[in-house]
Amino acid sequence: MNHLKHISKAMSDINDSYIQEAEEFYSGNSKLFGRKGKAAAAIFLGACLLAGGIGVALYSAGGHPLGSWFGGEIPSLDTFTIKAYAHGTDKELTAAGAVMDTGSVTDQGEQKGHPLFFYLAGKQIKSVRFSCEKQLLSFRDWTESREEYGLVRNFTIPYGEREEDYDYLTIGWEPEGILEALKDGTTIAALPEELREDRIVMEITFADGKTAVKMIQISLLDDGSFFAIFDDYSIQEGDAFVRRADGASIEEQARQALRQKQKEEEAKQQKEPAVLLDPAAEEAARAYYAETVLEVVSMEVTSSGEEMVVFSVCVTKEGILQDPNRSITVERRDGGWEVTAEGY
């Protein structure tokens, strides 16, 4: 135990500069350790590089003790106060708005940092549906227990009873449309106003079935920084973007891609005309065995083409069935079929 105390104390007294450096650090680079990712993760990471940060927190107002998950006394919705913070800097985002100092874009369409990258924290959240009006969103679950999303506009995330994990669920806002327009030669100041504005609507469902709607309104400023307002919201009839269907998760996209590939393979195989087997090919193979001690029981084509056929042949030797099957290859030579390979 003395050793542990010794190490613990020694570690306690390291330089302030290291403590400060570690305190203020929050990675802006998703490839810090050169990790080898799954394709799905790579898609998301690409998206993350375009993301920025706001942290959104839900707190119980007035410090009322909250009931246990799905049990105890669950407070009514109006007992919740919602707060928002810039992720990484913990700068509070309010209805008055704040300039996000975590990232910006340039006139050349380059993105620096992460203008909007946020998470929700709070009490008794069952699920949150995110809808982005114009740009794209991504979602990463650092607890690796939920499906993730990359560059989609709508998705629903189950939150659940582990409130301590909520801030591990990060949502990135991806201003793809803005960047594309800037890369096409437009300057920030010349961008159409509608492209410089975006909204993220969050439909929050609590464990008791009650709901709340919040919105982050994002505006691109002339200097390339972003101004974000976080406030209550009431979904309007004209908010078609909220009614769009959820996008596919990265995992689902991968599954869809796999299914599509399989379908294409099947279609390709169906389109390829079956090569009619020349009976002479089988005759040549049988003739070969007729010259040996092996007696053919059955033959199956394993591969066939106009110039070559391969059979799997079940044979007996002195009445004893041979296992495994033998393989024989016949090739078209001088208008007939000739055995070119035989064996296992």
């Binding site: 929050y26 990790r35 690796e144």
Partner: peptide, 11 residues
């Protein structure tokens, strides 16, 4: 887990 989040990496 916290480090993975902070460093945007896996556990």
């Amino acid at each position: 887990g916290e480090l993975a989040k902070r460093f945007r990496s896996s556990n």
